[in-house]
Amino acid sequence: MKIAVASGKGGTGKTTVATNLASVMAEEGQKLVYIDCDVEEPNGHIFLKPAIRRRIPAGIPIPQVDTEKCTGCGLCGQICQYSAIVVINKRVLTFPQLCNGCGGCSLICPVGAIKEVPRQIGVVEVGTADGMDFVQGFLAIGEVRATPLIKKVKGSAPPGEGISIVDAPPGTSCPVIESVKGADFVVLVTEPTPFGLNDLKLAVGMIRELSIPFGVVINRSNVGDEEVKRYCQTEGIKILLEIPEDRQVAEAYSRGELAINALPEYRSRFRQLFKSVERNFKGKG
């Protein structure tokens, strides 16, 4: 079973939910992999403290032009939708940062002057943490495209039938979609504020577009107003768990500690969350 943890708004508690849920399940002896797809700002490692066994440079193929062979015909510039290769006065210029590795230019070049070479955009790290497998990616500073790296992070997870928990980046655009794609169930984390509600609606729209069953966790459930709950009721969205704001949990978080270790009663909460996810997944599947 693949569970993705996502949210429209940043800072609502995705990583808190994902890491605590993963830890509780690993403690119960579930075979589990934690996949941190927030490659721009990965934080799961702060809480799970994995031992990294392998670091794999991740790249995408970009064009290398053989100027001897190139006739300056300009076809490569025409096919490229990202302005990553342009032809000016019969001279070819490439802009590797803009390339998304589609391979169109090398495919269309009539004289075989374009070869593809890998260009590193980040690194994938694979390891273990407290009885679970752990995978994360770090996008290199200045890189524009997170999506190809997220694909590699997902592809680096160990094979097998166990449970995977994906920590997705915030938002609703391409990196988020790549992260949640293929999940059996999505946990949307929100907070009961106007910003939280607005961004939850956007996230719900995205998940519905992908047709994946989902439920909502309301974090800091005792601050703010009742509008998120009202919205979930009206839309028939299952509220999986409510986590009240607690100074001790916030402080544990600030030190990089899991809530289930700071406050043992949180253990049963996250166990319930897993049961709730399982029930809702089976109910809909």
Partner: peptide, 21 residues
């Protein structure tokens, strides 16, 4: 930023980005 390990970690990455540009 905020005074959490996550906040600090992400601050370091994003200020590297602004320095880069």
């Amino acid at each position: 930023t905020e005074p959490t390990l996550s906040g600090q970690h992400d601050l370091e990455r994003v200020t590297k980005l602004t320095a880069h540009f």
